[in-house]
């Protein structure tokens, strides 16, 4: 607890601005994912922006606080969920048309009454799935690298 107070007192400006900025970064990331259909953007780009907010939190507040906020189990589950959504939508196209359609032929999912609009909605679902996976993977990579680096620094300090 006292360590946390020291960080807060040392880096008041960074901490306050991060606390204000992180929700807006995440909102912008969701905007980029969903508006990938009508402007530049899409799943990959939005996922990276979302993950950058977690990385900002880690850089400012340290590994301990970030580890409490973003638990490993939830991150691992999210990694699978996104790509599940993508592969699952493809499989759904086969199942819901009883074998007439091919894999990833979004037009046959009966969400609206028009063939082309079904394609647009299928594409949106798929982009959301990609965004979730990319976010979880970049968070995972960054957290594991920082954790290993901290462990190495601790091992260097011990024999001294």
């Amino acid at each position: 607890m006292s360590e946390e107070k020291r960080i807060y007192e040392r880096d008041v400006i960074t901490a306050t601005i991060s606390r204000l900025m992180i929700p807006f970064i995440q909102l912008f990331a969701l905007y980029v994912i969903i508006h990938g259909a009508s402007g530049p953007g899409g799943g990959f780009q939005g996922g990276v922006i979302f993950a950058s907010s977690f990385v900002l939190y880690l850089v400012v507040f340290g590994l301990a606080a970030a580890g409490k906020r973003f638990p490993e189990g939830a991150n691992t589950a999210l990694m699978s969920t996104g790509v599940y959504l993508y592969a699952g939508v493809g499989l759904l196209c086969i199942l819901i048309s009883l074998g007439v359609a091919e894999y990833l032929n979004y037009g046959f999912i009966p969400l609206t009454h028009m063939f082309e609009e079904n394609r647009a909605l299928g594409m949106d679902l798929v982009e959301i799935g990609i965004g979730i996976t990319v976010m979880a993977v970049i968070t995972e990579i960054f957290f594991n690298l920082v954790w290993k680096k901290e462990e190495e620094e601790k091992e260097k300090e011990e024999p001294r």
């Binding site: 394609r119 982009e127 799935g129």
Partner: peptide, 27 residues
């Protein structure tokens, strides 16, 4: 495809399977 952005509909519809492969590479 009713989607205005050409990059998105090529990536996700005409060549959607390759994008699934890329997401799997990231995974």
């Amino acid at each position: 495809t009713e989607v205005p952005n050409m990059v998105t509909y090529i990536l996700a519809d005409y060549r959607g399977f390759d994008t699934l492969g890329e997401a799997t590479v990231i995974f």
